[in-house]
Design a protein around this nucleic acid. Structure first.
Length: 866
RNA sequence: GCGAAAGUGGCGGAAUUGGCAGACGCGCCAGACUUAGGAUCUGGUACCGAAAGGUGUGGGGGUUCGAGUCCCCCCUUUCGCACCA
């Protein structure tokens, strides 16, 4: 062991050893409790970033902790390897996506391995492996067989200039990211998963996640699913044999309706305009409204519309209501048609005022006030008693709602209804780098799934990605042309690939059985490891991956593959690590080294804007490269820093000095351990008699037990790892203080060595989750052979953690006046007397009478005087 | 606009159920060792004040012997949703 700590050497040594000894490989063991610790699948962008470090450091700390607590810990790793960016990069670099992705995996794996993470690498998977995506196809077919998938025409972003479909990201601002042409919506046949069939389950089962998932994520999902309960009401169209069905949550306001408003693309628009002279005009205007709706931002779009000339009949009072079309009614929500009630809805109010549609009061507030006719205003929630509502006048809103829905139902023109914001999930992509959809289209037999024994449908190689129109796969005849599995006649393969979110739906099930080529996974193995005990990832997946994967779990349950409803018991969304930026008015974003000490630009001398803390990015020149940092102070210091900077779920700020501080701490641990290691190796195991100990010895033991307790509790409850690290620093400081006392006494005796040994045997295992390499090295320096990961987590003893003597705060009328020392076991009476006797207390309470004395044992005495 | 979360020293952040605010770290100041220190060790560091003492957890009110913590109002910031009928 060297006197000085060289992280590079230590880290290399232990990474090698862990790999050679397969330290972190696990298998099912029914005698031990399992713990599944999972970080979100890493996207193969090509380069590790600091967010990875933060994500993995949290998971790795927990995996280490649970392992030392005796759990059988599954901590696997894999690659989210399909997707558009690889395709784009490949085109740019003149290579192919597979090559690009394999290179990215090789490089990133090297980077991640330098972080020294305790993964079971034998379970590594990549979603672009045919052995993996075969099962995406298998799931697709099972779902198709059960009617969980369907194909329909749906709009996609389309660049008319390049004839290519674009993702939403590539079509932001409504312009093509490459050529700048205005993106249009083009109808294309697409595959959809019926996630809406699971809307209620996805919503209700959120209750099961309460407590284990962040409230924020749960509420985002609730919001996204957007369940809304109300009623459908049919309005007969005058003179035409059609009814317009509207969705409303407030049927009790129907007597206030002044119009029926349709979305411009509603199917009945052309029907109600039949034979009307201005038909063309209105239809064209509808197209304009529709375009506006798609392009403009909601808060900038003024509501407008036009009267169709047709009327509908309010089934409750037989009033004639004009039928309008307007830009604020959405075709995709509810029925695409609304009843306008200006006194019940702000939007309707705004619209009605603009077009002078009539207003009728249908609610009274608590004082039963009426709204003056000359002051039209939308009533708010406090207006809750119906008025002018026929036989339902004078009721509370909720009663009217219920009774009127029943009435509508009884008379056949309405029924209660539930709508959701959640839409079916379009899983088709007209792109190359993804899982091929395993379907064959036969002119005679329609869509037929590829037979199971022909899976996987392998993505062809050497495909020209720069094609005009459609998917690159359309231009690969040897892929497209096939035979129909049903009739044997000529047929064509589907050329869509699947959304990469399909890959990430179930990858963590595959980790349980990654090499199975007969089925996606063995059900027994999954039953052992799942659900995931702790999942860690970014908040950006709150309503993407995290809702899709919950859905997929339920699908797998309904396919009989798993028995539980929810796949993830606990979720932690880690914060981002941001960094200060430097901005020069002339040269824009600067690297820190381009800024002088006087905060001016090194190039032009202009004053630089500093202090803005932003998300790390290349363009803002504030990205920190993890490997560079590891090269400076090592992976342990890097991991320690990102965990120490703040609670895991909070955003943090990168600080070079903070990073140095983490490194300095490890050096400090090394130095004191180095000083004691040979003594510890020779420790004689003398029995410790607590009552014979000196105060400095008792103190170290006491603090040690207190700190074990607090670190353990933190791991178990809140996972505030930053405070765990603080505690470890305190323990280290205590060891230094102890060492000083030992020096002052002329060197260690047997008991000192024994106590120091205890302290180090607590400190080092507790440090391992945060800085495993140095911990392993120091552990072996104490004479241990095996990996620290097989060591038991230190135990604490409440008795030994208890203070002998406590400092008690003494307050007079709630103000701190003095502190007294007392035995920890002192009774309330003793404390009271000691406090009253204190000269400062007497001075403060002089001439006043004591009303009451409050004693909080071991903490404080408060004397109330008058 | 609706919804949620958060506001604590120069900075990152502690303060389990109401009980000594500022743990731990960064930074800064002083000292020791040293040819030297961007190493290490020791001490100091919320603010005002020479001190006694006073003031302090975004602002204002309240409950309580006692409030960073609980309740009401307001302000600010961040995030999410955003014509969802």
């Amino acid at each position: 062991m060297k006197e000085k700590y060289f992280p590079q050497e230590v880290e290399k040594k232990w990474q090698q050893r862990w790999a050679d000894e397969k330290t972190f490989e696990v298998k099912e063991d029914h005698d031990r409790q399992k713990f599944y610790c999972l970080e979100m699948l890493a996207y193969t962008s090509g380069r590790a970033h600091i967010g990875h470090v933060s994500n993995f450091a949290i998971g790795d700390a927990l995996a280490w902790y649970k392992r030392m607590r005796g759990f059988n810990v599954l901590h696997p790793f894999g690659w989210d390897a399909f997707g558009q960016p690889a395709e784009t990069a490949a085109i740019k670099q003149g290579t192919d996506p597979e090559k690009f992705t394999r290179d990215a995996i090789a490089y990133m794996k090297w980077q991640f391995q330098r972080m020294g993470l305790s993964y079971d690498w034998s379970r590594e998977i990549a979603s672009c492996d045919p052995e993996y995506y075969k099962w995406n196809q298998w799931f697709f077919i099972r779902m198709w067989e059960r009617g969980m998938l369907y194909r329909k025409l749906a709009p996609v972003n389309w660049c008319p200039n390049e004839n290519i479909s674009l993702s939403n990201e590539q079509a932001s601002d409504g312009k093509c990211w490459r050529c700048g042409a205005n993106v249009i919506q083009k109808e294309l046949p697409q595959w959809f998963a019926r996630i809406t069939d699971y809307a209620d389950q996805l919503l209700n089962d959120l209750d099961q996640l309460e407590g284990g998932w962040p409230e924020r994520v749960i509420s985002m999902q609730r919001n996204w699913i957007g369940r809304s309960s109300g009623a459908h009401v049919d309005f007969k169209v005058e003179g035409v044999d059609e009814s317009i069905t509207v969705f409303t949550t407030r049927i009790d306001t129907i007597f206030g309706a002044n119009a029926i408003i349709l979305a411009p693309e509603h199917r009945l628009v052309s029907r109600v305009l039949e034979g009307k002279p201005h038909r063309e005009e209105v239809m064209n205007f509808g197209e304009t409204l529709r375009q506006e709706q798609r392009s403009a931002r909601v808060d900038e779009l003024e509501k407008h519309g036009t009267f169709t000339g047709a009327y509908a009949i309010n089934p409750f009072n037989q009033e004639r209501l004009p039928i309008w079309i307007a830009n604020f009614v959405l075709i995709e929500y509810g029925t695409g048609a609304i009843m306008s009630v200006p006194s019940g809805d702000e939007r309707d109010f705004e619209f009605s005022r603009k077009y002078n549609l009539p207003f009728r009061q249908i609610k009274l507030n608590e004082e039963r006030r009426e709204i003056p006719a000359d002051r039209m205003e939308a009533a708010d929630e406090s207006w809750s008693t119906t008025v002018n509502t026929g036989q339902w006048s004078g009721l509370k809103s909720e009663d009217a709602n219920r009774l009127m829905t029943e009435y509508a139902e009884a008379n056949g023109f309405g029924r209660s209804a539930i709508t959701y914001k959640l839409r079916d999930w379009g899983i088709s992509r007209q792109r190359y780098w993804g899982t091929p959809v395993p379907m064959i289209h036969c002119e005679k037999c329609g869509y037929q799934p590829v037979p199971d024994d022909e899976l996987p449908v392998v993505l062809p190689t050497g495909v020209n990605l720069k094609v005009e129109g459609g998917s690159p796969l359309d231009h690969v005849p040897e892929f497209v042309n096939t035979t129909c599995p049903k009739c044997g006649g000529p047929a064509k393969r589907d050329t869509d690939t699947m959304d990469t979110f399909v890959d990430s739906n179930w990858y963590y099930f595959r980790y349980c059985d990654p090499h199975n080529d007969g089925q996606p996974f063995d059900q027994q193995k999954v039953a052992y490891w799942l659900p995931v005990d702790q999942y860690i990832g970014g908040i950006e997946h709150a309503v993407l991956h995290l809702i899709y994967t919950r859905y997929w779990n339920k699908v797998m349950r309904d396919l009989g593959l798993v028995k539980f409803d929810e796949p993830v018991s606990r979720l932690l969304t880690q914060g981002m690590i941001n960094k200060e930026t430097y901005f020069c008015p002339e040269h824009e974003w600067l690297f820190p080294e381009q800024v002088t000490e006087k905060k001016t630009c090194l190039i032009c001398g202009k004053e630089v804007v500093t202090g803005r803390v932003e998300k790390m990015s290349k363009s803002k020149k504030n990205a920190v490269d993890p490997i560079e940092m590891i090269n400076i102070h090592g992976a342990d210091a890097l991991r320690l820093f990102v965990l120490f900077a703040g609670p895991p779920e909070k955003d943090k700020e990168w600080s070079d000095t903070g990073f140095e501080g983490a490194s300095r701490y490890l050096q400090r641990v090394w130095r004191i351990a180095y000083k004691w290691q040979s003594r510890i190796r020779k420790a004689t195991n003398v029995p410790i008699v607590q009552s014979d100990l000196h105060e400095y010895q008792r103190r170290l033991r006491r603090r040690m037990h207190q700190i074990i307790r607090s670190v353990t509790e933190n791991f178990e409850e809140r996972l505030h790892l930053n405070t765990c690290i603080s505690s470890l620093m305190e323990l280290t400081n205590e060891i230094y203080t102890f060492d000083q006392s030992v020096e002052n006494n002329g060197g260690p005796n047997e008991v000192d060595v024994q106590i120091a040994s205890e302290a180090f045997h607590s400190l080092i295992p507790m440090l391992a989750p945060f800085a495993p390499h140095i911990s392993e090295e120091l552990w072996s320096s104490f004479g241990h052979r095996g990996s620290l990961s097989r060591t038991k987590w230190p135990e604490f003893d409440d008795e030994l953690a208890r203070e002998d003597e406590v400092e008690v705060a003494v307050q007079v009328n709630g103000k701190l006046r003095s502190r007294i020392f007392a035995r920890a076991a002192a009774s309330d009476d003793e404390l009271r007397e000691a406090a009253m006797a204190d000269p400062k207390v007497q001075a403060a309470s002089e001439g006043r009478s004591v009303v009451k004395v409050i004693v909080v044992p071991g903490k404080l005495v408060n004397i109330v005087v008058k």
